[in-house]
């Protein structure tokens, strides 16, 4: 089996150099002027009687990477899961406030949740491929959306796997079980699977937290490439990762959005004391 280590490095992307420091980051000043893809306003979220989010308002501009950071239990994952209404699956939950996707409230009663989730893809913390072949994993989204022609599916599968930088490693064994891939490959497969439904927004819930540094670097590299096409929201525990991959950073603490802004600003001159203490590692 081909391992990630044996792969030829892509010469044009000296990733470690380019993404290594905050100071190297591309200009981010303009990102708030870009069209707002997702706009959350005064979002309150309840698990039964327990309130998990308090009045969270955050704009997520198009083709930007927004990183949600904060200590465990701060509500960042809950907020992420509000954006594609995955919290609906948990009984006894309630959402207040509005979340606009392209200026339409995703919580209005008319929303087709199935349609929403095709537009807002999600990658989970622990890679969760279906116990099926690599091909069937990627083809699942288009299939449930009604795509039947084999040639069309073949095209989507190849394109998605190429975008998630997995194609070269798996093109000759698409019919093998996805569960035989390495952890890093499985996570990129899950990204490919999410891309196959052609979403506008990609939500990532600590996509690299279970991976080794090399696989993590590949995922980060991938996020950087994908933001040209998608709007990305990523939850991460890893401050360096947030600094490396995101344009905007939002710091959550105990259900409140403490501070949000350009990543460079949040990391170099945080406005709130809590933010500073968290990013410098004094708690969390």
């Amino acid at each position: 089996m081909m391992t990630e280590a044996s792969l030829p490095a892509r010469p044009t992307r000296p990733m470690t150099q380019r993404l290594s420091t905050v100071a190297d980051m591309r200009p981010t000043d303009d990102f708030l002027e870009r069209p707002q893809k997702v706009v959350a306003t005064n979002v309150n979220f309840f698990y039964g009687s327990h309130q998990a989010l308090y009045d969270v308002s955050l704009r997520m501009p198009q083709n930007c990477v927004t990183a949600l950071i904060g200590p465990s239990g701060c509500g960042k994952s809950t907020f992420l899961r509000c954006l594609n209404r995955m919290n609906d699956m948990i009984e006894g939950t309630r959402v207040e406030g509005t979340i606009l996707l392209d200026d339409v409230d995703i919580y209005r009663p008319k929303t087709d949740v199935v349609e929403l989730r095709k537009r807002v893809g999600m990658v989970f913390q622990k890679s969760n491929p279906f116990p099926k072949s690599i091909y069937e994993n990627v083809a699942y989204g288009p299939r449930v959306a009604g795509v039947k022609q084999r040639e069309v599916l073949d095209g989507i599968v190849e394109q998605s796997l190429r975008r998630s930088a997995l194609w070269e490693e798996v093109s000759d064994r698409l019919n093998e079980s996805a569960l035989r891939l390495s952890g890093g490959q499985q996570q990129r497969l899950c990204i490919a699977r999410a891309l196959a439904t052609d979403p506008d927004v990609l939500l990532m819930d600590e996509p690299a937290s279970a991976l080794d540094p090399k696989s993590t670097a590949r995922i980060e590299d991938l996020i950087f490439e994908l933001k040209d096409t998608y709007t990305i929201v990523i939850v991460t525990h890893n401050m360096q990762q947030a600094a490396r991959v995101s344009d905007q950073t939002a710091f959550f603490y105990e259900g409140h959005l403490v501070e949000a802004g350009a990543t460079t600003d949040v990391f170099t001159k945080p406005r709130q004391k809590q933010t500073e203490e968290y990013i410098t590692g004094r708690f969390g």
Binding site: M86, M89, V114, R117, G121, N128, F130, G141, V144, T197
Partner: peptide, 11 residues
Amino acid sequence: TIRQASYALGA
């Protein structure tokens, strides 16, 4: 996780 993955893909 299998359920979540499936629902998240719009199934």
